[in-house]
Amino acid sequence: MRPAFSVIFLTTLIGAAQGLFLVLYATELAHAEVAASFYIIGSAVILLLSGLGLLASFFHLGHPERAWRAAAMWRTSWLSREVIALPAFMAGVFGYACAHWNGSAATAAIGGVTTVLAITLFVCTGMVYAAIKVLKEWASPLTIVNFMLIGCASGATLASAYAVFTAPELTAIYARAAMALTFAALVGRSAALLRNARLKPATTMQSAIGVRHPRIVQRSQGAMGGSFNTREFFHGKSEAFIRSIKPAFLVLAFFAPLLLLFIGISTPTLLLIAFLLQYIGLLAERWFFFAEANHPQNLYYQTIG
């Protein structure tokens, strides 16, 4: 698949926002002694990230002015469910911030509802990809687990960087939580990489054209200048590029942040760098997620002719 940058930014930004919210709410549940402003500014950061993600998603659409229609088919479409869950989560975060602003006792209840919304959004985002049966690389529960773990890991790393400026006493515990989540995300993502490396395509050239012969070669795809099918479903990068981006994202998104978080427990200034590196790494991770998926329609577009 051709990685779409609008979707890469959407999924990475909202993932970090959801993760940050879950960390903030866990902090409240643990009765940490922090000022209300910690939650209010934190919620503002969450809204900023998810708002940017939402904005990015509009660039994916041919008709962004009709985006409201996308909420219609929530009964069948995971994309439609995601379209509903994202604003619902943002509204929950806004309500959570307002409750803290007013000093209301309802923060725990609103936070609880928003937690459910955050998890729902993780499931919806993951299922948008996992529900496409023909893309074997995505059609796995690991896709949802990894969206969740990676979102929580980047959110916790962001929380540790955020705490440096707002609640320094929490940086150490946040950094430790971020390390644990980043490690869990590394395990989940590695499992997905191993699974995908052993995948046998269910669809072959033989079933694509219905001829049982071991040697079938395409001589012409019916158009010389390319088509939507040659643009949308191929990443267009060399094998060497694909081979190099995998270790690059593993280092940037997982190993380097783990090291920086570890050092950051004693040297908190590194925590912001840890988040920035991890975010860049996750952009590369998401790029690879798309590029790795090999669509069966590509069998029909092997040779220009």
Partner: peptide
């Protein structure tokens, strides 16, 4: 149609 191309991903 909003042009999200999701249907084209689902079609094998």
């Amino acid at each position: 149609c909003i042009g999200c191309k999701y249907c084209s991903w689902a079609c094998p």
